[in-house]
Nucleic acid binder design. Structure first.
Length: 267
DNA sequence: GTAATTGTTCATGT
DNA sequence: CACATGAACAATTA
């Protein structure tokens, strides 16, 4: 699930349930989620600390610890976070289990193990190291336009490039293209100034809408393409028209061939 | 059995 | 360097 709206949901969930509680035990159930640190060391660093603040940038979630180090979560394709009272409620693919002194638990669940957790000292330094672009919800129009300048890649590839701006993945890139009525394979430098303006505005509209509905696809506006992104899906604007699929950046892309046509205007 | 899956990185080629 | 593509990572489902 985890693109920007899902990770924002996790952030608010942690804010609500798991802040300011002392950590009593830490269990790494699968060491594949660790990077450059031993299970033992990771567990002992967290012990007796609390989470005192959270931050989300793009698809990353950062939890600040009492000692001012940060616990970083990346959710890969299948990561999630659960807080619960009874160990029986531990999810099936729990990879990190934290037990607080109030006897409640926080679990990082990650079926496909593409996600990871790690500890860092300096958030800005880490952000620079991994070349994480500005958050898609907070990038200024000025920076957006500057970064687009001279780029020739397909608009969807640009949207999904986390070095360019962070938080948008395969699903929401399709929605943003659809709502802007731009063909996802349109080279970004061949989009009119007016459409680029629309694109910029649509990014935050779509992401904020998704956050508002807590990333529950079934609640999205009826003109959204996301619930129709499946085999034999049709255009929510005109159900006669089948959606088409193509591959962009290796990802299956759904779009409506009637409402999203390639254009060839120069800037 | 085959293909696909909300992500990222690396190798390779243009 | 910009960009596209495919493979790899792993688990599960249609």
């Amino acid at each position: 699930m985890p693109e920007l709206p899902e990770v924002e949901k996790y952030k608010r969930y942690v804010d609500y349930y798991a802040l300011n509680q002392k950590i009593r035990t830490v269990t790494i159930r699968n060491t594949k989620i660790l990077q450059n640190i031993s299970k033992h060391k990771f567990e002992s660093i967290l012990l007796d600390q609390q989470f005192i603040e959270t931050r989300r940038i793009g698809k990353y979630l950062f939890l600040r610890l009492s000692d001012d180090n940060w616990l970083v979560f990346h959710f890969g394709m299948t990561g999630n976070i659960y807080y619960f009272k009874n160990l029986k409620q531990e999810p099936n693919h729990s990879r990190l289990l934290i037990r607080f002194t109030n006897n409640n638990y926080l679990s990082y669940d990650c079926q496909r193990l593409f996600g990871f957790v790690r500890l860092i000292k300096n958030l800005n330094k880490y952000r620079f190291q991994i070349q994480l672009g500005s958050d898609a919800l907070f990038i200024s129009k000025k920076e957006f336009l500057q970064k687009i300048d001279k780029r020739t890649a397909k608009v969807k590839s640009v949207l999904m490039n986390q070095h360019f701006l962070s938080g948008i993945g395969n699903i929401y890139a399709d929605e943003i293209c659809f709502q802007t009525r731009i063909h996802p394979a349109q080279p970004i430098n061949k989009i009119s100034t007016k459409k680029i303006d629309e694109l910029y505005n649509t990014i935050s509209t779509v992401l904020n809408t998704a956050i508002y509905y807590q990333a529950d696809f079934s609640k999205y506006p009826k003109e959204y393409i996301i619930p129709h992104r499946k085999k034999n899906g049709n255009c929510p604007l005109n159900k006669k028209h089948d959606l088409k699929t193509i591959k962009i950046s290796g990802r299956t892309t759904y779009y409506c061939p009637i409402h999203q046509k390639k254009i060839n205007k120069r800037k």
